[in-house]
Every structure is written in structure tokens, then in C-alpha cells.
Amino acid sequence: MIESFVQGVNQVSRYIIPLLLVGIPFYGLVFKKVKVYETFVVGAKDGFTIAVRIIPYLVAILVAIGMFRASGALDLLLNFLSPVLTFIGFPPENLPLALMRPLSGSGSLGLLTDLINQHGPDSLIAKIGATMFGSTETTFYVLAVYFGSVGIRKTRHALVAGLFADAVGVFSAVYICRFFFG
């Protein structure tokens, strides 16, 4: 039952983008007499300015993340934390992914691919990893892009809240998967 529901949802999602692309102008043109082409161009103009505006924020965040990753600090942290994690039922194999996820989308996808190839998609570790990947976001990237686009420099509690949510997502992934598949 779940399988067919998942398939159904994924089927529907294939049609959403094309339907929005044609449905919104259709509604505007037919019901509201909006000059759709001219309006589109006016809106689209902002695409360039916004993309350029986020460059300094992205450079700052991505350079710091890159330096941290390349130094091997993540491995040190892993060695240090793995006894504690084993104790609380958190598979140490999943820790690199959990730590990488808020930092880098491509980095964490690489780690997930690795986990699935090494342990097989039916393993608990792969299932936990995939659940983690699907339930958290690249917090630093989102922060840089969203705040950067409007020139916000003082981000207040956004980062702490985002990282807390990531941590909750990661631990939820571990324990729900242990409960279902463990």
C-alpha cells in the first residue's frame, strides 16, 4: 500500500512543474487579463541581480567549509566521538554523513552513495543514512543564499535554530530506523 502511494506521489510530482509553468500564465491571461509576457520579463529581470548579490556570502561560507573539510578535522572529530555514539545506539558509520549534511550537499551525497555501496541498500546503516539525508538540509548554504540575497549580515538565532533542527532530524532518523528496521 505504501509502495503504491509513494509511486503515486512521485508520479504526481513529475507533472507539477510543467503544470505550474503553464497554469499560472493561463490563469493570469484568461481570467485576469494580465499581460503575461511583459509581466514575466519584468519579474525575470531580478534573477540576475539576486544571483550576483549572493556571491560574497557564498564565497565566505563555502571557503570556510572547504578549508575545514580538507584539513581532515572531521575524521579527528569522528575518532573522538565514536565511543560515545556507540553507547547511545548511534552507528558511528553514519556520523560523517550527519556532520557533513549541514555543510555540503554534494559532500553529503557522496558520503551517502558510499554508505549504500559499502553496506547495501537493505542494511540498517544505509536506511538510516538515506533517512538522514532526506530529513535535513544544507543549513549553511541556505543561510548564506537566503540572507545574502537581501544583504542581511546579522543573522541572530537562525543558525542555532537551523543546526538544532538538523541535530533533531539526525537523531530522529537513527531511532526511527532502529525502531522500524533494527
Binding site: V34, F48, A51
Partner: peptide, 29 residues
């Protein structure tokens, strides 16, 4: 990573323009 950041931002231009254009229509209507 400094280069990657710029490439990422530039790569966003097209998709940003597309959705912001559509959004403008949604707003006007």
C-alpha cells in the same frame, strides 16, 4: 571553493529568472 561559490551563483541566474518571472504573473493576477 571561492570559484565554486561564483559558479553556483551564476548557475542560479537562469532558474531564478524563470521562476521569478512566473511568480510576477502569479502576483499580478
Amino acid at each position: 571553493m571561492a570559484k565554486v561559490a561564483v559558479n553556483l551563483a551564476i548557475g542560479l541566474i537562469g532558474i531564478m529568472a524563470l521562476w521569478l518571472g512566473i511568480m510576477k504573473i502569479a502576483e499580478e493576477s
